[in-house]
């Protein structure tokens, strides 16, 4: 059983390598989020158990690539938090990736069902 879990985890990691960018863009497409909020949101899905050490450097890269933007915001008594949102380029990239993802799923499904 433990071996099976380990295998599943490895598979998740492999799959996420290509899809995490899409997942994050899509999560920010819904609404602006700060790091911890985004992480908790992803952790609510079984196959999206990424670590802080994966998330933050990736956010840094997406920002560097001009796909997302960030600003500091303080609400009420809470600590200032860094919120992320999609840029116009990010919005466009998200649409393109969503299309490619759906195409891939259809293709794979089609292969599996033959």
């Amino acid at each position: 059983m433990a071996k099976q879990d380990n295998f599943n985890e490895k598979w998740d990691v492999q799959l996420r390598k290509g899809t995490l960018e899409l997942v994050i863009l899509a999560a920010l497409h819904q609404k602006e989020r700060y790091g911890l909020e985004l992480l908790k949101y992803l952790h609510s899905f079984e196959t999206m158990q990424i670590t802080e050490g994966t998330l933050y450097p990736l956010m840094d890269r997406l920002k560097r690539d001009g796909l997302i933007d960030a600003y500091w915001n303080q609400e009420g008594d809470s600590r200032p938090r860094k919120y992320y949102l999609l840029t116009e380029t990010g919005r466009h990239k998200q649409q393109v990736l969503v299309e490619r993802w759906r195409r891939s799923v259809l293709d794979i499904e089609s292969i599996l069902s033959q």
Partner: peptide, 15 residues
Amino acid sequence: EVIKEIESHILDVVE
């Protein structure tokens, strides 16, 4: 900027 964000995250979790 990197340090500030990570610190904010950690303190949020601690709190």
